[in-house]
Amino acid sequence: MNAQDIIALKERGLAEAAQAATLAEIEAVRVKYMGRKGLLQDVMDGLKSVPPEERRDFGRAANELKQELTALLDGRKATLSAAGKAAGRKQFDVSLPGAWRGLGTRHPVTQVIEETIRIFSMLGFTVADGPDIETEYHNFDALNTPADHPSRDTQDTFWLDGTTLLRTQTSPVQIRVMERCKPPVRIIAPGRCYRRDTTDATHSANFHQVEGLYVDRKVSMADLKGDITFFAREMMGPDVKVRFRPHFFPFTEPSVEYDFSCHVCGGSGCRVCKHSGWIEISGAGMVNPKVFNIVGYDPEACTGYAFGMGLERIAMIKYGIEDIRLLYDNDVRFLGQFS
């Protein structure tokens, strides 16, 4: 027997191993070739009769036989046993629902608040806060809205006593911030406000506003326009336009109101914008020098802009909510839509 015979033997073994269809047949092949009394052992027993110069090739061929046959048999065994396990295992329905508790949702007004914070944070604004129960001074007087002036009429107030009230706007936070910080000031102040409005589809006695105030050297109305426009695009979409109309607020001069072009129809008119293409948002203006004087800022050394926005209104527009009362009804079917 020489090395060629061993290679031929290997080929036969490999062919038999490939044909073995059960674990028992695989084992039979192993025993036949590599068992204690197997064919490979027979070959090795003949090693002594091989001439010394051929022994190296002979040995290598015998070794190859052993390795290759073992590898093939092991592979066949693994495949067959995996298939066997799979055949014995219960199948499950992967279309069944998952069982992990889902995430909750943020209230749509909160989402607008958080989005507003994000947008103005990009510009370096930080969040300021003030109390819901305010003084008449902070809510009105310091905002150049004296008691005997008709500009108070627009805000029907919940008075708690002669001098304290539930704030009708977030503007008193402007005053509180300017009382405690020197300029420059760059803040927004989201919060709850209260007015004695009879509740209907667009009015709520309890609502949210966000106030913005930027005071520095040479702040201009152009800055106000640019920043509000930036906000509009970030909040409602990159194609939204803003238009400004002159208006009156006691604590800003000049004062403006601003409208966003309708993000739903792009300005051509739809249900959300009542077919006008524009949606009235809120008011803003350049801080009235009288207000600066009241808080002890020098109106010659600084100028500033301020704005306020109704957050329910923005949420309603943004999400197409038709009735403000839905925002305070807390129906889980409604809230679940804002994931």
Binding site: Y328, N330, L335
Partner: peptide, 9 residues
């Protein structure tokens, strides 16, 4: 997994 509500003050 909690969802936020808002009630009047």
């Amino acid at each position: 997994g909690l969802s936020e509500i808002m009630n009047y003050s």
